[in-house]
Design a protein around this nucleic acid. Sequence first.
RNA 1: GGCAGGGUGGCCAAGUGGUAAGGCAGAGGUCUGCAAAACCUCCAUCGCGGGUUCGAUUCCCGCCCCUGCCUCCA
Length: 458
Amino acid sequence: MSLQIFDSLTRCKRDFEPLVPGRVGMYVCGVTVYDYSHVGHARVMVVFDIVYRWLRRLGYEVRYVRNFTDVDDKIIRRAAERGISIEQLTDEMIGAFHEDADALGCLRPTHEPRATEHMQDMIEMIQALMAQGYAYRGASGDILFSVRKFEHYGRLSGKNIDELEAGSRVAVDEGKRDPLDFVLWKMAKPGEPAWDSPWGRGRPGWHIECSAMSCAHLGETFDIHGGGMDLKFPHHENEIAQAVCANHGRFARYWMHNGFVNINTEKMSKSLGNFFTIREVLDKFPAEVLRMLMLETHYRSPLEFSDQAMHGAKAALDRLYELKRRAAQVGLEWEAAGDLPEAFVQAMNDDFNTPEALGVVFEHVRLINRALDQGRYPKDALQALVAMSEVLGIARQTVDAWFGVDDVDAAFIQRMIDERLQARKARDYERADAIREQLRKRGILLEDTPSGTVWKKA
RNA sequence: GGCAGGGUGGCCAAGUGGUAAGGCAGAGGUCUGCAAAACCUCCAUCGCGGGUUCGAUUCCCGCCCCUGCCUCCA
């Protein structure tokens, strides 16, 4: 079976065939850089990192674009609150974003455009919309998109315009002809950042930037457009309207939306205040644990985030690293080679089913451990395991790094281990156990293996 | 209210018209001086009620419950 992707627009799995054979263009909506990213953002990063890695593994040359929204009301407000410039704020947050993404083992996209770098593209798109009568200048002076002019509006999110309007509590002012219309170009108030445009100084609306940047980097029609489920409406709906109307094109060919991160079954969000920033989580767990947690749930399902779930993911990774250590002890290279197991390929090809793929990974873990127990050297199985790990971006650290082995206390611990060894040789088990207990209290766990005693942090 | 997606063992989570992967936790066993790690074994009939079928957790209908979107939101 070749790759199938669940397309949000048609609501079914479709065989993936890129526009240009061998090449894939993918655009993922990034973040608005006014604050640190939270676990929900982490999910988008990891989900599309998996998509990116898998497409590359399948041999595609992938152009992966993920934007930064660096003009926006929240940014303006936050910068003012902190008494710093907008540029200082966005630079700082983009740096933090990269730190988080790197920690999570996410490969950098091939392009990471900022909205402010694409003013001209946005203005041109708005001009095209104006010229074709899809946009108009509202009473407030803002340039607005006329939703009613786009017949397919609502298709992505499955919304009926008339029902939307009926239930709408959207403010009726802002000079809109229709409550559903949205801003393409917003006139600047004094003191606000502004760019010159044919309609006066102002800044772009949120939606136009993604339409403009995706087309600028990937062309008017490209393969995959992704983002969080909450972006479906109205953001992606609006993106489609703008791009399709401006370019007479199809715009994105496959739409992918990842599910939310929940806490106590509720969506993690800023407004509910039930969110954790990525860096908060990384104070308590290695970043890879968070990545593992994300892989344990299918990307379209809600993901339950909890301390317990994190501990579970940590324990699962411990098993993988124990095996990595064990392999090293018997002189087996930790390197990817050969083909991926068929079951793994099937799982990944089935709309990136990472939970199922992980099942294959752990079946291999057991297989390899069993062989090792029997004194065999399952080189092929290990190489397959490593290959799978690389696709998933896990088990990429050194064993020492994972188990918290560092130079500072290593010498001390080694002295204790040596001392215990002497005691054991003298059959003074009471003394040996006392030493082990002493270290355990300091969070150091000893394990006696056939090739000597090793230690790790609890 | 409209629309969408869900309810699988103690927790998390895949999946299939023919009696349910994997991870965590738990029980027993092997190994070990003892542990730890590893391995072996055990632990669910898939929200409820109908229907279709030789057979449904998987298809259809009804019901209950949960979540999300409809406003900025990954």
